[in-house]
Amino acid sequence: MLETIAPAQEQAPPFRLLTAKNQAPSRTLPDRYRLSHLRQLEAESIHIIREVVSEFEKPVMLYSVGKDSSVLVRLAQKAFFPGRVPFPLLHIDTGYKYQEMYSFRDQFTKENDLDLRVYTNQPAVKDGTNPYDLGTAACCGQLKTKALLDGLAAGGYDAAFGGARRDEEKSRAKERIYSFRDRFGQWDPKNQRPELWSLFNGHIREGESIRVFPLSNWTEIDIWQYIELENIPIVPLYFAQEREVIDAGGTLIPVDNFPFRDRLRGPIKTVKTRFRSLGCSPCTGAIRSEATTVGEIIKEMFQVRTSERANRVIDHASDDAMERKKREGYF
């Protein structure tokens, strides 16, 4: 039999991988030292929040009143217990949020002893900026992106926590946990710092900043399960109830307090609906649902077959709508 004979002249010595274990672990973990996926995600997020507070001079948490914000606040409380959350919350208010969101925001921040700041692009509001006359992109540009950048600059914040998750949208899938922004608040997706292990590089120059996403590795289901597990308060709009809505070509828009009621065409119906994600009233639709508890929402989630932001008008204007907004400074 012809065996291959090793060549007389050996080449360079093979490299032994000194960084790798060469043997299988002798035993698996005892059950009591297993940590469920939610507790692992929680520990990771707390680590991120503490790291930012330790390395930055003036952090702030972007607070959108939604379910992810509620979770983010809980994680911050856990990170600094028994101390208080050591940074303010900043709500970028477009003026078009639902009334339930404003009342929830004020009560939630008061009960939890949180330092809430609200910032609005006042000149744009005075000009009557709205998505019907300007289009959704320009309206978001003024009331959200510009307001956000101005609000961050006005506060002199060098790090801003946001509740974005990588499973939300495909351009988010590549975003770092520490997302570097230049002096204009812009994101350069082709020039991101590599992020290895849980070692974050928070080095910035004067005027530059980072956005931090402690929920990066959470999915929508994780958020709901955590809300259930931790009994975290959320805006009642997330729960189904009979609402008077305009059926505007499949998008269900509640008409209660709706500022552009006369601009919508479509039949008015009373339907049991809830919101999967919350935004501005002109641009966020409700979905038909029977879910009135978090448990029922989770059950519904396992059956639902549309992605979370599908009811957001802003995202599907074009295939790369979200990426463009992010480059310009949007969250």
């Binding site: 990588r166 499973d167 351009s171 899938a173 590549k174 997706p189 082709k190 999915t219 295939d319 990426e323």
Partner: peptide
């Protein structure tokens, strides 16, 4: 995920999926 990648048909960065 990124526009540049879709145009060039390549993936240029680590993407996380769930």
């Amino acid at each position: 995920g990124l526009k540049a990648e879709r145009e060039q048909g390549i993936t240029i960065d680590v993407a996380y999926r769930f």
